[in-house]
Amino acid sequence: MRLTNCLRDFKKVGELTKKYANLPDKYIERSMEKVMWKTPQNNPRFLPRVVKKKKFIFTEDRPWTLAFDSKNSLSSIESKVFLEPIKDWSFFKGDRVEILVGPDKGKQGIVGQVIQERNWVIVNGLNCKLEEVSHYKGNVAMVQSRERPLLVTSEVALVDPSDLQGCKVEWRFTEAGEKVRVSSRTGKLIPIPSLAKETFDYKTPNTYKESEKDTKTMDVQEITFLPLLKTFEMEIMDAMGITEDRVQAPTHWY
């Protein structure tokens, strides 16, 4: 029970978020972790127990950043956010969408960011709001327009490529067994854009530039494994010329 409780918060971080960040799960978990209280270690009077913060508020700030950290301080209590459950997520980065609410109602734009934790998408250059960004004393505050997030469930609709109008989306299977997005109105396929494969580190896996610390592709793909009737230790000992003549005394496992 306790295990499922701690896993629940980590699971709240969206799959697309993790995919875009290209970070190991363990790191995201570690950077989000907030320990309230811990029993003293190496003390026989205490059992190892840790009390962690369970409720997090997800916004545009990514879970591993400092902004997320300061927003979710140990003392902060935020009101509960109700999220509409979605069966199949169908909005990806690079999708053309139509906005259904607000001053930009009816306009079409490209999805720039997906925030799956809140069912949000941010459309490039649309649904903007003016914001003061600098508040130095005696200076005139600078004003800048920033995109506000839009709810996927009711505030945006995907654009059907055949007639360039907003539509509802279904997931169906092709005859080849591939899962595809299809417009409910016209039945036309809505392909997933190549931008959806983009991560923080590279645009496409092919264009990744190897850094100095990386192992070269050739070295990774080289097959050096030869099946032998030996354990790992036996093979290493043979390769190093170590011979073991001593006979182990009988031991008992219990």
Binding site: Y202, D214, T215
Partner: peptide, 30 residues
Amino acid sequence: MAFQMLTKCRIFKNILNTKCPINIRSNCFH
């Protein structure tokens, strides 16, 4: 290929190419 982005061991290539004499134990362990 997804293989292109790989890790960590800048000297892995050197290792694969070096051929150590089999019977000198200390040399092998480097």
